[in-house]
Design a protein around this nucleic acid. Sequence first.
RNA 1: GGCCCCAUGGUCAAGCGGUUAAGACACCACCCUUUCACGGUGGUAACAUGGGUUCGAGUCCCGUUGGGGUCACCA
Length: 546
Amino acid sequence: MDWNKLAEALIPDENVKDLEYYEKQYPQRDLPQGAQVTRLAPSPTGFMHLGNLYVALANERIAHQSGGVFYLRIEDTDEKRKVEGAVEVIHTSLKYFGVAFDEGADLCGEYGPYYQRQRAEIYHAYAKDLIKRGLAYPCFCTEEDLEKTREYQTENKLLPGYYGEFAKCRTLTEEEIYENLRAGKPYVIRLRSQGDVEVKHTFRDEVKGEITVTENNQDVVILKSDGIPTYHFAHAIDDHFMRTTLVIRGEEWLSSLPIHIELFKTLGFRLPKYGHNCSIQKIDGETRRKLSKRKDPEASLTFYREQGYHPGAVRTYMMTLLNSNFEEWLLKFPDKPLDEFKYSISKMGKSGALFDILKLNDISKTYMSKLSEEETYDFLKAWADEFGSDAQKAYFADKEYLLKVLALCMGIGGKKRRKDFICAKQAVETIGYFFDETFSPKYAYKFDKATLTKILTDFQTAYDYKDDCSAWFDKVKAVAEQNGFATDMKAYKANPEGYPGNVSDVAEILRIATTGLSNTPDLWTIMQILGEERVFARLQKATACL
RNA sequence: GGCCCCAUGGUCAAGCGGUUAAGACACCACCCUUUCACGGUGGUAACAUGGGUUCGAGUCCCGUUGGGGUCACCA
């Protein structure tokens, strides 16, 4: 058979150049010893998964820690999944979490184009070469043909797929091929696999360690009928020419590793290092499963923006999942920048971690508690501008007032900072009672109406806005005493049955009456911030509502 | 189903043949406290299972079970 002629007939691409051209066009990178070139290669579906961030962070850390390069490549070979504006979503959502690329799609870089669709010429050049070498061939099988063999294979408990005797088009004669071509039948280009499934090799995976891989024997499709490469083929060519040294990717790729190994080998490329990380899981009733884009809102990166989780907190949480010794480091150096942590692939977990929002919340609380009130103001404002209600947006009109509220809720000036804020959404909601528009109390007291009325009126007659904190509390105590409540905690504890309650109960009643909540920061300060008029208004309202 | 990966408390996890089996989150109790928090102290709670190897096994080997992944002209 005339392979050269066949190659020309199959792939009539005029742009194709000699293979040496591409090697020269994309030379080895001039990088210091040990520098790693890594990448993120998502498909532009418009959806960014938490897993994308997870794997992006791992690759980014490795590259930048080693003085290497981290780039973005867009795997847009699947027409059906392509979504407009998806690349922008990738950039903006990753940037929000502090992941920045050195080069790649929509950025500069010498190793582009970084969109696979724009790289057709290179793929064609190599597919052609493979055909010329007799290592690839056209396949005219239809979907039904493939379906039939698959059925036969499963029925007979044979390895499914296109290989050996089942690879019908592998043995097509020259005449048959040209006849099909003349008939205008669509075709794909398949690899003529040289592998043998009986042969197993041990392979060193950077995260899993030694694993066994079976040789590939599938005549996988390398070029689809529209001339666009499949993932496998594009992966081999792109990561070779973009000079990737290390590929950290999800473990769903582990099973196609044999294909990639064979492809790199037959193309004459040096295999990069691989690390396959486990996917983040979630507990769903009784079973764990991968975080699902469809079922779990927290799988989407937009979820964290909508909720207003601080990007730094999400990043920190990701790091705890990413590296087992990270938390220990964080405990030791709570105020160092995250990038100073020495990340290592070998410390990546071998089993899939369960997503734990409680843990994220805890990390977020400590993270938020380290911000200044100005920073918090800016952060909350940015969130409210995008996601808040009109009433919430209005909070930010009076900055001075809001700053006072934030300082109180954050415990600024106190011995220890409070940890009331988890995310912007929750924070903005919890300060709602400071604003009349959003003050919608659901009074839930533990005492009867008569007691409550008495206490509230007693306090109203005693309260003086000008009182300082201790004078104010003396009055609370006085109100407690007037109503038979204990003011001496020791006495109360010794005989809890002897009193209707104690000072803390009185304080709680006042707290609920003025804020609608039983859980708020220091009441005296709240009243100071609210202002005399509003305090009385609220106490009256509360009394009226009894 | 075949192939591959994984297996320590409810969760994240230290551990690399000899430990009273760390730590963090969550939960509970107590302390601090005028209230709410923060903080502090303590507590409940784990090596999936059966065989080996070894003086000795969470750690090494094999089986079982369980979980996950994957078997496309999707990535």
